[in-house]
């Protein structure tokens, strides 16, 4: 039983980081109908920013976390301004946008490699990082709690933003229908930039979380998370924010359980198999949103 509980704890902390990443990812999709594959690279930028702030500038982790989020958000906005915005204005269609996002991701990874080298980097050793408690035969690491807590905080903040503020209402209107949004006076350009910022910040947050949890930051860490993010997106339904959060947790748990009770070699196959089966049964994801038709 304690093995099951242990695996559950592992799965929840992993899943909460997935959830944070996926929520940003799905927001971009839901609001702007954009499948931005550069999000994985933005995640990596956040991870490096957090790491270097702690390593070189010796900032305390909470502060580094916030700065990393802001930096990742800024990079995301930059990609919108430099690439995706102009592409859309010049008549590029969605698939071209996808290619562009792949190239942007590649560029960011290449730059990170130039600057930081290919080596995996690690956070300097601090006593609080090794802290853990054993309850009922289950080992809970301090790091896991930190990831869970920050994930909850971040998502609560997002929920407040989306549900309770004017800005949030504007964003949700855009998600509903961009032309309607324009008609009712939503500053679409500004909201677009803001959405990119939020998505980037969330990706960056997940980057710091996973970087700290596994104490490993490398230029290639974005590739794996992107694939997981896509899986979560499908499970939760494209554009469905609470769905993404739940699906993130679900994926974390599924991965851990499939390693624990099936075979570690097929971990990813289980995730993909799940996606496949769910899509066959519910072609619009678990929470059933249709692909948007833009008028």
């Amino acid at each position: 039983m304690s093995v099951f509980l242990q695996q559950t704890v592992n799965g929840l902390s992993l899943g909460s980081a997935y959830a944070v990443f996926a929520v940003g990812f799905t927001l971009l999709f839901g609001v702007l109908n954009v499948l931005n594959l550069a999000q994985g690279a933005v995640f990596m930028v956040g991870a490096f920013t957090g790491l270097e702030l702690v390593r070189l500038v010796e900032l305390p982790l909470p502060l580094a976390f916030l700065v990393a989020m802001v930096t990742a958000g800024a990079v995301s906005v930059l990609t919108q301004v430099a690439v995706f915005g102009p592409l859309e204005r010049r008549g590029g269609h969605r698939w071209m946008g996808l290619i562009a996002s792949l190239a942007v991701a590649r560029l960011l990874v290449a730059i990170a490699q130039e600057v930081f080298g290919t080596q995996v980097l690690r956070y300097p050793s601090e006593p609080w990082m090794e802290a853990s408690w054993t309850i009922a035969g289950v080992q809970i690491q301090g790091l896991q709690l930190i990831v869970l807590a920050t994930a909850l905080l971040v998502m609560a903040a997002l929920a407040v933003l989306l549900r309770a503020t004017q800005t949030g209402r504007a964003i949700r209107t855009m998600a509903f229908n961009p032309n309607v949004a324009r008609l009712v006076g939503v500053p679409v350009q500004r909201m677009t930039l803001l959405t990119y910022f939020i998505a980037g910040a969330l990706a960056g947050a997940a980057g710091v979380q996973l970087g700290v949890l596994y104490n490993a930051v490398s230029p290639f860490m974005g590739e794996t998370i992107l694939l997981k993010g896509l899986t979560v997106l499908i499970l939760g339904g494209l554009g469905h924010v609470p769905g993404a959060a739940l699906a993130g947790l679900l994926l974390g748990l599924t991965e851990v359980y499939s390693v624990g009770y099936l075979s570690s070699s097929f971990r990813d196959a289980v995730g993909f198999g799940l996606v496949f089966i769910i899509l066959l049964v519910r072609p619009h994801g678990l929470f059933g949103l249709t692909t948007r038709q833009r008028a």
Binding site: Q6, Q7, L14, L210, V259
Partner: peptide
């Protein structure tokens, strides 16, 4: 980078 599941087993 995540080996907790395998190591628990």
């Amino acid at each position: 980078v995540e080996f907790a599941a395998q190591l628990t087993k």
